[in-house]
């Protein structure tokens, strides 16, 4: 049981990191990023490849963050000068390109077969089940650091500026401030956090394949952010929690429904997620952790 809870908690933390970073993009800056899984994938493969080539974990994690941020840079320069709906299309395409490239470049990524045998920190220390707990501690630390970083950012004058950009970009320009450079920076920071999430994921799963990085992941993260509340840090945690609750809870539900098969349950789970999203948009459009607008 403890092993199960630990496992769920680790997955929760990874989704919390993704939700927090997406919230920095969309909730605080208004960037419509439909390709978050692309940065997640880059981080996962960067960390996995570094580890499998005998480099220390620190190098792998640094590479994961740096490469994800680096991928965000040209994307930002290209798309952030256009209207915001273009960013949505460009990022969605970007994440699919990442997945296709990972699938195709077999010499590097082993293609559809994926990368097996990715070592996990603490696993070789011979502390048995405590290794899982130690890894959980590492993942929790990452979430805490991400929260502190984002909170510091959004409370600074820089954070005030990004929220002004979110609320009205034209007005920001009229005041003599250039939104483009600021948006590129925010985009890179959020991508780096998603890259770290990818690295933590790869080391936890020990085995990654391109199919783990479908646009569905981006959709799940968006859902978690909307449920918790765009522009709310605590909302990111709550939203990720609700999401994991649904994904895990639907397993339990299957045990109670004897006539439902595994494949059917997967579809049912998506339907449930969709239904919940509809209910939220109807009754809590600002999410769980954001007060309803009076106006």
């Amino acid at each position: 049981m403890l092993a199960y809870i630990t496992a769920v908690a680790i997955v929760f933390c990874i989704y919390a990191l993704l939700t927090l970073s997406l919230n920095l993009h969309f909730g605080f800056t208004g960037l419509i990023n439909f390709g978050h899984v692309g940065f997640f994938a880059i981080g996962a493969y960067a960390a996995a490849l570094c580890s499998l080539n005998g480099m220390p974990y620190v190098v792998g994690f640094t590479a994961a963050a740096a490469l994800a941020a680096l991928a965000a840079w040209p994307l930002g320069l290209l798309a952030l000068r256009l209207r915001e709906d273009y960013l949505a299309i460009v990022t969605l395409a970007f994440s699919e390109i990442v997945r296709v490239v990972i699938t195709a470049e077999e010499w590097l990524t082993n293609g559809v077969q994926g990368l097996p045998g990715i070592p996990r920190p603490f696993a070789s220390l011979g502390i048995g089940g405590n290794a899982e707990l130690a890894y959980l501690a590492l993942v929790v630390t990452a979430v805490v650091l991400a929260i502190l970083l984002i909170r510091h950012l959004v409370r600074s004058p820089f954070g005030r500026l990004i929220q002004a950009i979110r609320d009205d970009e034209v007005a920001v320009k009229a005041l003599g401030k250039n939104p483009a450079g600021v948006k590129v920076r925010v985009f890179m920071i959020g991508a780096a956090i998603a890259g770290i999430a990818g690295a933590l994921y790869a080391h936890y799963m020990n085995y990654i394949v391109p199919d783990q990085f479908l646009p569905l992941v981006t959709f799940y993260v968006w859902m978690a952010m909307i449920l918790g509340g765009a522009g709310s840090i605590s909302g990111s945690l709550v939203g990720a929690g609700v999401l994991i609750g649904i994904l895990e809870g639907s397993r339990v539900v299957r045990d109670l429904l004897p006539n439902v098969m595994q494949v059917e349950m997967a579809s049912l789970r998506l339907a449930l997620v969709g239904l919940l999203l509809v209910l939220f948009v109807l009754y809590r459009p600002n999410g769980l952790m954001v007060k309803r607008d009076e106006s």
Binding site: S156, P157, F158, R160, L161, Q163, D167, A171, L175, R185
Partner: peptide, 26 residues
């Protein structure tokens, strides 16, 4: 208006050349 910022923040956000608005400054 920057609708989710307070009135005071709206004005403060407009001040030119703020060091704190750069990442380094933040």
């Amino acid at each position: 208006p920057f609708s989710k910022l307070t009135v005071r923040e709206n004005l403060a956000a407009a001040a030119p050349g703020q060091r704190g608005e750069t990442l380094w400054g933040a």
